[in-house]
């Protein structure tokens, strides 16, 4: 009896994976700003769905999967924050001038391109964008600092993000 339930269950999850894995990873990457973290968390989410025991109470497996994934993403962000706070405490103990290792994820020209793109935008849009995407502050904090509504902050960030993406595309695929 038990084995039968589980195998049906596995089928369902395979179907979920086939139909929604790309969207799930995209959703998680949006939350985590890292493709590899997104893939890891997606794996974990499937595992959770696969091993859950209150299967009968779930209406939509898909909604449940995304909900679990969203929660796992929040956990991961929290852990990341603890780690970076810890790193910050450690760093402040080190003598000034011991420069941190620098790895260039983005070439200097690309950063210059972003800088140019941001200059083309209204000051509020580029400020909200940099505070959220680069500094990693949440929408609420940005809204408070800039004395704007959260809705406006989101609007500015979305606008700046679309603009920068368009500018980067012009460079990368003219």
């Amino acid at each position: 009896m038990n084995t039968v339930t589980l195998s049906v269950h596995v089928d369902e999850i395979e179907k979920l994976f086939r139909e929604h894995n790309r969207a799930l990873v995209a959703f998680l990457q949006c939350r985590l700003s890292s493709l590899s973290d997104a893939q890891e968390v997606a794996q974990e989410a499937y595992l959770r769905v696969l091993t859950m025991d209150n299967r009968e109470e779930i209406e939509s497996l898909r909604s449940y999967l995304f909900k679990i994934a969203g929660n796992l993403a929040i956990d991961r962000l929290r852990k990341r924050k603890v780690r970076s706070d810890f790193a910050a405490v450690q760093a402040s103990d080190e003598p000034v001038g011991e420069s941190t290792p620098v790895h260039h994820a983005m070439a200097v020209e690309q950063v210059a391109g972003i800088r140019r793109a941001l200059r083309e935008l209204p000051a509020k849009a580029s400020q909200a964008f940099v505070m959220h995407v680069i500094e990693g502050r949440d929408f609420g904090t940005v809204a408070q600092t800039m004395n704007l509504s959260e809705r406006m902050v989101r609007y500015h960030v979305a606008n700046a993000l679309a603009h920068c993406r368009a500018r980067v595309d012009e460079k990368e695929m003219p």
Partner: peptide, 30 residues
Amino acid sequence: LETFERVNELASRLDSLDTLSRQSLIKAFA
């Protein structure tokens, strides 16, 4: 979804920016 992924890709790239570029962007805009 493809367009959404491209937006994601840029946001991820900016998230892994080196410290110096990050600081300079913050200084310039934030």
